[in-house]
Amino acid sequence: MRTKSKKRIYMAVSCLSVLTVLLIWYLLIDVMKITKSSVFPGLVKTFDTFLSKLVETKPDGATLGQHLLESLKVCLLGYSIGAILGIPLGIAMAWNKWCDWLVRPVFDLIRPVPGLAWTPMFILIFGIGIEAKAMVIFVNSFVACILNAYTGIRQTDDLHLWVGDVFGATEWQKLIKIAIPTATPMIFTGLRTALGGSWMALVAAEMLAASKGLGYMIQQARYISRPDLVIVGMLTIGVVGLILDTILHKIEIMVAKGMNAQ
């Protein structure tokens, strides 16, 4: 009972903190006008822009909802391909040293290169459609999935593997029955990190060539000097990122619980 009331207080504090930031924003820009609204928009103007952008296609040809849908489509496409290819490769690298030795040098070389840097090349190879953008996101999610699957498998307790040996399990059985279940929570952490990374890579991907999407909306708003729209775009990315992360976090907890129950 007491913890519950405590939780309520903390929740109120959270609300208060967000409201305080909004209030400071409102006071500084809308009331005190420390800078012109064409330079940094006030809270009221930004909120107005947000509301009108929900139904209005001007100035960039699509409503906020349409931009969001397009972005989610690209993001999830690149993300799922990255996860489908990345997790098995990560597992293979952790399980088989030859595989690790063969893949790692190229992986280490490619990993630090930001998605944005690949874009000119991807346009050349894949064109300007959804493929090039999805590829940029793919690279991002691929790397995160490999890393976490790899670490997850590597965490397998040697003792468990020895038990497997004692009972005469084959390599394959040890992998399926021992290592992968151990790694599953870590793999899910990877999936969550990868989704965050994919969502962040999106703006970069949409800045190179697009006619829809949140990244495109921000870029276009920059071009036509509309900082209010830039901020609406940023906050939308932030809030949607928060929602995506929350959903995957829920799944992660469920999976972790399921593993323990076994």
């Binding site: 939780k7 929740m11 959270s14 609300c15 967000v18 409201l19 909004l22 409102y26 809308d30 006030g42 809270l43 009221v44 103007k45 909120f47 107005d48 809030v239 929350t246």
Partner: peptide
């Protein structure tokens, strides 16, 4: 709860916007 909080702040924002529209 965070979501609840979010809705609350959005509503508060709406109120703010409503009140000050004229002044703006």
């Amino acid at each position: 709860k965070r979501f609840g909080m979010f809705l609350v702040s959005a509503m508060a924002l709406g109120l703010l916007a409503g009140c000050s529209g004229g002044e703006e």
